[in-house]
């Protein structure tokens, strides 16, 4: 009996996934990947805003300082980053629109008694998500063409 009590008092091993749990979408499907991408693009845009404000700060150092900063940022790598920021913005804005609607229960449909095989509301309305993704891809291609030409 004493052994049992001692065993039950042992603390359970924590098993929370932590940051890996939200980054890694694993075997889940489309919306779970969009969730990760939305967060990553959000963080990317936040980083861009910080860098953008930092770069603008070179203006305080006078014309020479500003010109050298711009010269540094307009290299091919800087252009790629700039394109990625625009593409991330397009994704974040449109997916954010979808999320605002769905967070308020719109475009998800009504509850239905579950009948096997179960299809949840997000998968029922997935065509809308595909349309949104198609618009994002079209925008990303358009932005790319604008950047290249």
């Amino acid at each position: 009996m004493e052994t049992e009590v001692a065993s039950s008092e042992k603390p359970h091993l924590p098993n929370r996934l932590g940051v890996k749990g939200w980054v890694w979408a694993g075997r889940y499907t489309l919306e779970r990947y969009l969730y990760t991408l939305h967060r990553l693009t959000g963080l990317g845009l936040l980083l861009y805003v910080a860098l953008h404000l930092g770069a603008n700060g070179f203006r305080l150092g006078g014309e020479e300082s500003w010109t050298s900063a711009i010269d540094f940022l307009t290299n091919p790598f800087g252009r790629v980053v700039e394109y990625l920021v625009m593409a991330a913005f397009a994704f974040h804005a449109l997916n954010g629109g979808r999320l605002i609607l769905q967070h308020l229960g719109y475009t998800l449909g009504k509850p239905k008694p579950p009948i096997y095989p179960y299809v949840d509301s997000m998968r029922r309305r997935r065509p809308l998500t595909w349309v949104m993704l198609a618009v994002i891809v079209a925008l990303a291609i358009y932005i790319l063409v604008e950047f290249v030409t």
Partner: peptide
């Protein structure tokens, strides 16, 4: 709204 909960739910 990751939707993973609904995907995993075994009872629909």
């Amino acid at each position: 709204l990751a939707g993973a909960c609904s995907e995993a739910c075994p009872k629909g």
